[in-house]
Amino acid sequence: MKQWENFSKGFIRDNPVFVLFLGLCPTLAVTTSAYNGLGMGLATTFVLVMSNLVVSIIKNLIPGKVRIPTFIVVIASFVTMVEMLTQAFVPDLYEQLGIFIPLIVVNCLVLGRSEAFASKNDIFSAIIDGLGMGLGFALALTVLGAVREVLGSGSLTLIPDVAEFTIYQGDGMLVFVLAPGAFLALGYLIMLADKLKKKMY
């Protein structure tokens, strides 16, 4: 039961994007469509789970003073792996995400979970925490991507060519696909998340 709570806290109560405000750079930058948001979310989830696992294993071997650089090197290695994997298996997503895959290295969410959770807890809890937080992050990115895509271009792409929907015909509000729309959409989604959280807890 405790592990379930540990897993599910990332969805609403401690959602990394809407409540903790961590990892906002990729959140805002890649969410021009639901598919991009989902891809970025899953890539981050992988890095988060693996780095939490490794940090939790080596937590007793690292002297306190050099722990941050050590964590960053661990994270950077997994990010390099993710970059190579996306380039090999989903090249179109790799093109779309561009510089934001290497930037997972400096995603405060990943470093934050290593520092605040994995370096203090056992291996199993660390994996569950990474998975829960990562999926919460992916959920937030997908929702934000979906909102921007529907408002901006009138379509919704979950997986290209498999699950593509047209919501309405004609021109959307272009501003939501451009940079400022990301801020506006996220601002209002934070408001909704705040309402929802107050209702649930």
């Binding site: 990301a182 996220l186 601002g187």
Partner: peptide, 12 residues
């Protein structure tokens, strides 16, 4: 932060 995002959007 909600309003901060909206202001940032307008500045953008």
């Amino acid at each position: 932060l909600g309003i901060t995002f909206i202001i940032t959007g307008l500045m953008g």
